[in-house]
Simulated scan of single mutants.
Amino acid sequence: MRIVLTNPLLIPFRDELTRNGGDGHDWEFLAGRPDDEVVDRLREADVLVGSRVTPAMAAAARRLRLVHVNGAGVDRIAFDALAPGVIVCNTFHHGSSIAEHVVMVALMLSRRVRRADALMREGRWESVALDPAVPLGDTLAGRTVGVIGLGEIGTAVVRATTALGMRARAVRRTPGAPLPEGVRVDRVDGDDGLPDLLAGSDVVVVTVPLSAATTGLIGAPELALMRPDALLVNVARGPIVDEEALYDALASGSIGGAALDVWWSHPNDGGGARGYTRPFDTLDNVVMTPHHSGHTRTTFAGRAAEIAANIARLDEGRPLVNIVTASR
């Protein structure tokens, strides 16, 4: 089979891609190439491995059998433009990496690490040992984490935070669905339980996919429900949270802080390097990272191996795993 790979994140994992049944095929690595070149090379492709399919790409790839997204998100795939019968699969393996990131940034905000680090670099000690007026930080143990979404990321966040002594609650579309073994959640509600979760959580973690239903899910009314010392951690997609409302809540102190790993635009989409329009960079109560919470060797090695195994299944006529949909 002819396989075109367009995403640069998997280039260092060629060995993993060509093991487990991914070997013996004609791989073409086009990461970083212009769209018109990718369109041309897709005319003879059986498989596309990447995070993005434009209508022009889909129109050119008439013999395409499989689009294998190299991550979980499929919001950049032009499903309606794909030829009939094309299968779209995704892959995960990022839950533990993102859960560790959530714990890290929640602790950074709770202990005011960003401010302390900046002051130390200026030669200034801000410590209660020197000034009793300096606010004390807090532990995560004994506090409540509220998780919006209980997929791979959400369940991994519950595992990591409850291991540190936090209580967990969650909302998801199917509240009665069974939880994985060992996942301890005090309360699981449907989507209508979001207001209670926001009002009752010390740390709110957003993990749901971006869709028409989740765009703007957290706006000014929802942020107003949160406690003044509560933290918001977004590791899902930027537009799930209203940018203006979040900035206002952080700048006014109506919530305690936020850790943002995802933004409202991305350099790969022509959005520039900032990803935001409001001056989040001026706020001490924000931890900012460039959508890399899941970017670990563990994540990408696991994804590469699973993609290769799925390509082998396709070649052998066996059922694929992680099918998102088959185009009509």
Score class of each variant (00 low, 15 high):
L197Y: 00
L225S: 00
D202Q: 08
V183M: 05
I218H: 11
P239N: 03
L194V: 07
G219P: 10
E222Y: 04
P178I: 15
A230I: 02
D202A: 14
Y247F: 14
L194H: 01
D196P: 02
G238T: 03
D202N: 11
D191F: 08
P175I: 07
G216R: 08
A199I: 09
G182T: 07
R184N: 10
G193W: 08
P195K: 07
I218S: 15
V241P: 14
A212K: 15
D186T: 02
E244Y: 00
G193P: 05
M226P: 11
V183K: 10
L210K: 11
A236R: 14
L246V: 10
M226K: 09
R184I: 04
L246H: 12
D192P: 00
A212G: 14
P180S: 05
P180K: 03
V233R: 10
S211E: 06
G238I: 12
L197G: 15
G216N: 11
I240C: 04
L210A: 03
V204F: 02
V235F: 14
S211Q: 02
L232Q: 12
T214V: 08
D196I: 01
L231M: 06
A212I: 00
G193N: 03
L231V: 07
G219T: 03
E244C: 12
G176I: 00
V208R: 05
L223F: 10
P239V: 02
A213H: 11
E243S: 07
V205I: 05
A220D: 15
L246R: 14
V233M: 13
T207L: 05
D191L: 08
R184G: 00
G219S: 08
D242M: 09
T214I: 05
V241I: 05
V235K: 14
G193K: 10
A177D: 07
S201C: 05
T207I: 03
D202Y: 01
P209M: 09
D202V: 13
L179R: 13
A230Q: 01
A249M: 05
L210M: 11
L198Q: 11
T174G: 08
P178R: 03
D192R: 11
A224S: 15
A224P: 04
T174M: 11
D196E: 13
A245P: 05
T214D: 06
G200S: 15
A236P: 03
G216Y: 06
E244I: 06
A212H: 06
P239H: 09
L246W: 01
D189M: 13
V208F: 01
L232I: 00
L246I: 13
G238K: 06
L197I: 03
A249L: 03
G216F: 11
A212E: 15
S201M: 09
V183C: 03
P178V: 06
A236W: 02
L232G: 12
G190S: 08
G219K: 00
V203F: 04
D186Q: 09
D229N: 09
L210C: 00
S201W: 00
G238L: 14
P195Q: 15
G176W: 05
L223W: 09
L225F: 02
S211K: 04
L232E: 04
L217E: 02
R173A: 12
L198F: 00
D229S: 12
L225R: 15
D191S: 13
T215W: 06
D189G: 02
I218K: 15
N234M: 13
G200V: 04
D229T: 07
I240K: 04
A224E: 12
P195R: 10
E243G: 12
P209K: 12
V241C: 06
L225H: 01
D242L: 03
M226V: 01
A220E: 15
A249E: 08
R237P: 04
